[in-house]
Amino acid sequence: MYPSAFGYYRAASVQEAVALLGEHPDAKLLAGGHSLIPAMKLRLATPSALVDLGSVAELRGIRQQGETIVIGAMTPHREIEYSTELAKTCPILPEAAAVIGDPLVRNRGTIGGSLAHADPAADFPACVLALGGTLTIQGTAGGRTVEAADFFQDMFATALQPGEVLTEIQVPARQPGVGMAYEKFAHPASRYAIVGVAAVVRMNRSVCEEARVAMTGATSKPTRLTKLEAALAGKPLDEATLKATCVNVVSPDGLLGDHTASATFRAHLTDVFAKRALQRAAERSTSR
């Protein structure tokens, strides 16, 4: 299989990518290409042109600015998986990266590509939402920053406007007392999330001050489990609390379902994986 013909433009900088998008309004941005190229091979996507971000060095890398971790949009999953810095400052991201696709896919797929594609079964969107991350976007009018909660709008739909480039992802560096974990039930063949739950908890001694829990896989966009979050505040995250709160966390009404996993089964999985993620997040909150 091969894609239908398209024009190919390689950007050397973000500025050039924005300019190229201006010149070619029907162009798609090419990041790692591990969602876009398969879609183009199946002719599900037939862009007239691609603007390749693969040579834009400024979009790649992980750095810390004060209390914020900044990840370039073109940073591959594999770099996140093996980042010793992120293992300390934002361990949920390496943990999620390690369960995306397979090692060879992770060598090419990028965090920015994953977020901008907004596949409802992707892993990073729920993590960035639970972390309260922000996304930096560049366009002809300059830069803007969007909260993760506002970025994801629907299945494959984000706040990105035509001509804009997602450049950076900012997430808070882990503070003492904060624990985080990502747990997913992966599709046996594709490894996409049938249900994935990202949990970030802030503990004071053994009491939960704040829990941020987001799910992926069964909803059209990553979704905060606000009812569960409210039920956890002020409680110890022990077995009794989790057993009592991780029950009917979401209603199957409106959840995605298919021949692999019905909406009812996914609602059940959400209970199970929310509990697991919270349990491990709470355990990790005591580590330095």
Partner: peptide, 27 residues
């Protein structure tokens, strides 16, 4: 498989092993 699943097309590009059915030659 030609759909980035099976890995029969794995080659090393720039020091990392990737699935060459999901990479354009221009990349």
């Amino acid at each position: 498989c030609d759909t980035s699943q099976c890995g029969a097309c794995a080659v090393s590009v720039g020091g990392v092993v990737v699935k060459s059915c999901t990479l354009l030659a221009v990349q």
